[in-house]
């Protein structure tokens, strides 16, 4: 599934950086370095970023500008990373966050 915007009538959709590889829950995906982690994931068809603490319900992109924290994930071992405002880097290890991800 490719969701990248291409051939836009107004925008020049150039890429932020070179094509790199990262892993999401153990699976390797490609991403453009420097774009928000969330954007790379959406393009790879990954829409669920975390599961809530009590009811274990899925959450994904909601505000896109670092305010709501619904897109928080575990990135390189650190929980609660807001993926919509964190740039992706080659080799990042990204995991779906369960609850507050204590002890992971």
């Amino acid at each position: 599934m490719c969701l990248r915007v291409e051939n836009h009538v107004i925008l020049d959709c150039g890429h932020t950086g070179p094509l790199v590889e990262v892993t999401v829950d153990g699976k390797t995906i490609q991403a453009y370095e420097g774009e928000p982690i969330l954007a790379s994931l959406l393009n790879a068809g990954i829409k669920i970023n975390r599961y809530t603490v009590k009811r274990k319900e899925p959450r994904g992109l909601f505000c896109g500008i670092g305010q709501c924290t619904d897109c928080a994930m575990v990135v390189d071992g650190k929980p609660n990373v807001r993926t919509c405002i964190t740039p992706i880097k080659a080799g990042m290890v990204i995991k779906t966050q369960n609850g507050l991800s204590k002890g992971e």
Binding site: R4, V5, L11, A39, L61, C63
Partner: peptide, 12 residues
């Protein structure tokens, strides 16, 4: 949020 994705991050 959708607008940010398409116009800034170039992902639908």
């Amino acid at each position: 949020a959708a607008q940010t994705m398409i116009n800034v991050n170039h992902v639908k």
